[in-house]
Amino acid sequence: MSVQVRLFAVARELAGADVVSLELPALGTVRDLRAALAAEVPALAEILPHVLFAIDSQYVAEESVVPDGIEVACIPPVSGG
């Protein structure tokens, strides 16, 4: 299945892209997505252990299954305020 990952801030700059498309196995989890993103964009590998992922405005847990075709947001540590 395929998912789109939206990147922000340092992740966007390291990748040189706003969006990355990934292929995941059926019933792939956030853990699988994290590994697939590191493989697809090696420049992100160093920061990926520190980012969260969100679907439909909600942070998702490592074991959550990623729905097919969904857009996932890659959220590096936030610094608003």
């Binding site: 922000f8 801030a9 340092v10 700059e13 920061i47 520190h50 969100a54 947001a73 959220i75 590096p76 540590p77 936030v78 610094s79 608003g80 305020g81």
Partner: peptide
């Protein structure tokens, strides 16, 4: 809240802040 700031330092460098 997913908001990020980038410091544009006076010495010319810029840096995203990610605690």
């Amino acid at each position: 809240v997913p908001i990020w700031k980038k410091e544009n330092w006076a010495d010319g460098e810029s840096q995203w802040v990610h605690p």
